[in-house]
Design a binder for these strands. Sequence first.
RNA 1: GCGCAGGUGGUGGAGUGGUCAAUCACAAGAGACUGUAAAUCUCUCGCCUUCGGGCUUCGGGGGUUCAAAUCCCUCCCUGCGCA
Length: 414
Amino acid sequence: MPFSFKIEKKGGRMRAGTLVTPHGIIQTPAFVTVGTKATVKALTPEQVASLGAQVVLANTYHLYLEPGDEIVRDGGGLGKFMNWPGPTMTDSGGFQVFSLGAAFGKNASKIAERGAVPEAAAGFRGDSDEKSSVHEALAKIDEDGVSFKSVIDGSPHRFTPERSMEIQHNIGADMFFAFDECTSPHAPYEYQHEAMDRTHRWAERSLDYHQKNVKRDGDGMPTQALFGIVQGGRHEDLRKESAKIIGGMNFDGFGIGGSFDKEDMYTVVGWVNDILPEGKPRHLLGIGEPEDFFGGIENGADLFDCVAPTRLARTGNLYGAHGRININNAKFKKDFDSIATGPDGKKCVCYTCANYTAAYLSHLFRANEMEAATLASIHNLHFIVNLVKMIRQSILDEKFQEFKKEFLTKYHGK
RNA sequence: GCGCAGGUGGUGGAGUGGUCAAUCACAAGAGACUGUAAAUCUCUCGCCUUCGGGCUUCGGGGGUUCAAAUCCCUCCCUGCGCA
């Protein structure tokens, strides 16, 4: 059975569904665990599976550089290579157009606080070849594609939509994304428009290459599914135009990418999802924090991925029902109680919290022991994955609004 | 007891007559992180402060000098070597 997506329950824009892939079923809404370099940092696939994760997302740019997409292909494809038997995805490298281009050396995020005009905005000219005061961008965009300098050794590389598809065919994830440009939230309207139009042309080229070259099974069905990406920044007219154009192409699913103002991110998602075809899955790329799942799901998103749980874990920040804690804080040194609460507000049941005290985890972080990252990552991923599962259940039970209010009150009330 | 080398912040260790006490690192305290340039980055770290600055300090005491962590004397302490 190749691919199918079935919506089981709807409520306004939100839906609970089932996404079938060649390597298993994903019950949506779902959190997609990020494993950029074909590994969820600090965790074995068995640990990732045991905390409830259903699907792993790796990155085209990073795997192309290291170890090389042909090695992943020869190793049996992403899932087999990394020993993850479940569903897999790859991102196209479009985010690296941003993080290694306009955002390079600027400490800039794809999420902007409204009204805030950080350093990244100053002198923005839309093109990525400007020199920041600290670093020279490692990515330059033109109509045909993007020229990169390797973050590993500085060597020059070139991505086009066709090349990204070829690499992603080699990596062989169940689902993957069209090559796009993720823009800076500080780019002006004109640039957002220009980048969006280019992303649309790249989407067409991505889809065309994919349909001609994808490996097919015995029934002639594609073995990989391609998702197109909607862009348009925070602008209503651009987002709606992008949803219409990308939504009109024959993709298997959709990504909602690019930059947002934190305050109206969910509104933007709503605009887009009112236009995208209802029967296909929608992935809100790179999001998010606990509150974002409620906002995204309420507005029709089915899939999320975010580095936050694993990245935060490695610096000692742990999710809890009453907000985040920093296990490095002095108050945890002699705290022999359990570490955190779960998304249900009760004592967390993850492997880490069930077996270790706050004082012990505090010790591991202070001593720079590697296991600190493992235990903290297990907790954070468990929290996020299961929060999204609980939201899914609340949709099925028609109790979404109650759960949202209950959770967010606690989470932000501390 | 004699000889040699030392004693600077929580630690290691810079500084060896003025423009400078505390480079740098570690430890400590706190913060940030949203399709992973990320086991990373930022800030604070003698005392006081209206954030302009003010004050105190280099084992103890004494001295030389316009000026001493820095030179001299002495005492105390530590390490090493020899008796």
